[in-house]
Design a protein around this nucleic acid. Structure first.
Lengths: 203, 203
DNA sequence: TCATTTACATACATGCTGTACGTATGTAAC
DNA sequence: GTTACATACGTACAGCATGTATGTAAATGA
């Protein structure tokens, strides 16, 4: 009988899930603070306690890992905003609540740097759009379609409207993040966006 | 008497201006078709008929050259849009004309790829914003301030409004460029933006 | 005309990515 | 349980791109 440490037997799925989670978590933190380009893959794997071999086994390339990080972030964000929206009594108050939660979330370093700054450039706008369609944009489209079905908003092409609203909201978040006076900037953009949203209402 | 080609004597300013122009022109074309990251500096200099030595003599780094390209593009764009705006009888018709010219211009490969896609990521949003403030954003701010001074539009914080309008217009251009049916998409976004702009008018 | 600065070329050092290949661990058949 | 295979990872290597250091030719000014 030996006292040597006996390696616990883990299933392959567990191993994969564990290292992938470690990679995504490490990458998320490093990308958030220093940006995609400035972080070598080697540093990510070291932080995750593995080597580059593991990375290139689970992901096609560095972009693949980045995409996994982006999707995790988007999923979280959409859940938060969706939950806030659901707190509202109707689509209108819901939109205001959702906007607030979103703008708050966009102050976090990871969201700012990864989703708002790097994602479109690293993945390309087409892939980025594809992801957005499933998360943030999808949420807005559903809300707007519901509101139009209820006869609450004017007749406008919903897909185009949703996309433009999303881009404006994201730009608003970037402005707040970069502003000298974030509180004032936030008030300004909320006023502008609020006026726009109000103009969508049927009189 | 020799038949050998005699090198014309050129001033240093001419030499510099010539190679810088050649570098910017070559870089502009290559960046437009394949994007900043995918184009090695060596390829640019070869297309310009010089070596990397010339590049690093005139610009601090590859980004420096990219920035020069971006500024040239922005200058041209702002001139075109500004001219279209001036054709209008008032700020309102001018805005419509300017929007049309801008959306057309954004279909060009160089504008799409360099200004709309790569610029923010390569230069960083802060530098990009700085450039925009001098060109496109500057134009919109002047127009809006004039319109407000004339009592034509409602009271909203102009800087925030201008920035959000610009981002929406740029996103509209990206949408058209990426669309399966550009004509229809263009009609849709113009309808949405038109409705927004109209809502800014004082009743 | 000679010294000095400017414009460029060449050669080099470094860092990062992706791949080829080797090894260890889990999994399934007999 | 042993054998055969698949999966998960580590290591070593090759290629490429950037930026810099250094050398050379052209222009400028005294």
């Amino acid at each position: 009988m030996s006292w040597q440490i006996r390696r616990v037997r883990r299933t392959q799925q567990d191993r994969s899930a564990g290292t992938k989670a470690a990679l995504v978590a490490a990458a998320r933190e490093l990308f958030a603070t220093r940006g995609y380009q400035a972080v070598p893959a080697d540093e990510i794997t070291r932080a995750a306690g593995v080597t580059r071999g593991a990375l290139y086994h689970h992901y096609a390339d560095k972009q693949g890992l980045f995409r996994a990080v982006v999707e995790e972030l988007e999923r979280e964000l959409t859940d938060e905003v969706g939950a806030a929206f659901a707190q509202g009594t109707g689509p209108l108050t819901g939109m205001a609540l959702g906007l607030g939660v979103f703008l708050d979330a966009c102050l976090r370093e990871d969201v700012r740097r990864i989703s708002l700054t790097d994602a479109p450039a690293v993945l390309g706008w087409d892939v980025w759009r594809e992801i957005e369609a499933e998360y943030g944009l999808g949420l807005i489209v559903r809300v707007l379609e519901q509101a139009r079905a209820d006869g609450l908003i004017v007749k406008l092409p919903v897909p185009a409207l949703a996309q433009l609203v999303l881009s404006a909201v994201m730009e608003a978040a970037r402005m707040i993040a970069a502003a000298d006076d974030p509180a004032r900037t936030r008030a300004d953009v909320q006023q502008v966006l609020g006026a726009w949203f109000a103009s969508l209402l049927k009189s």
